[in-house]
């Protein structure tokens, strides 16, 4: 499996990454190398093997539905790049 520069641009778009044009070629080469190494997996016989998402056999723990956190909006907004009136600011979304 090899990745073309065009595919790299597409994946970068999906990942919301702006790449410099000069990065695209080296990334295509390096990602192709990595996928080449990863391709060894396709030879493994995994018929009947259940996928393992997690090392521990555990179920999601539940907790009582009670408030456990204090309101710390000001603390959390203090580290945001841009806020106003308790809201996070982003560029205009709706024209």
């Amino acid at each position: 499996m090899s990745l073309s520069p065009e595919q790299v641009r597409q994946v970068a778009h999906l990942a919301r990454l702006q790449l410099n044009p000069e990065q695209v070629e080296p990334y295509a080469r390096q990602l192709t190398d990595i996928l080449g190494m990863v391709d060894r997996l396709s030879a493994a016989d995994t018929a009947g093997v259940s996928p393992m998402a997690h090392p521990l056999d555990m179920v999601q723990r539940l907790r009582p539905d009670v408030i456990s956190e204090a309101d710390r909006r000001d603390d959390y907004q203090a580290i945001a790049p841009e806020t106003q009136d308790g809201l996070y600011l982003v560029p205009k979304v709706i024209e």
Binding site: L14, Q18, Q23, Q30, P91, V93
Partner: peptide, 27 residues
């Protein structure tokens, strides 16, 4: 735009190795 904000913030904020792994993961 919001998309440009995401893309450029992540393009500038992440170094090359992190970007490679994000792209492999996304792929």
């Amino acid at each position: 735009s919001l998309e440009e904000l995401y893309k450029r913030s992540r393009g500038e904020g992440f170094g090359a190795e992190v970007q490679r792994r994000i792209m492999i993961g996304t792929y």
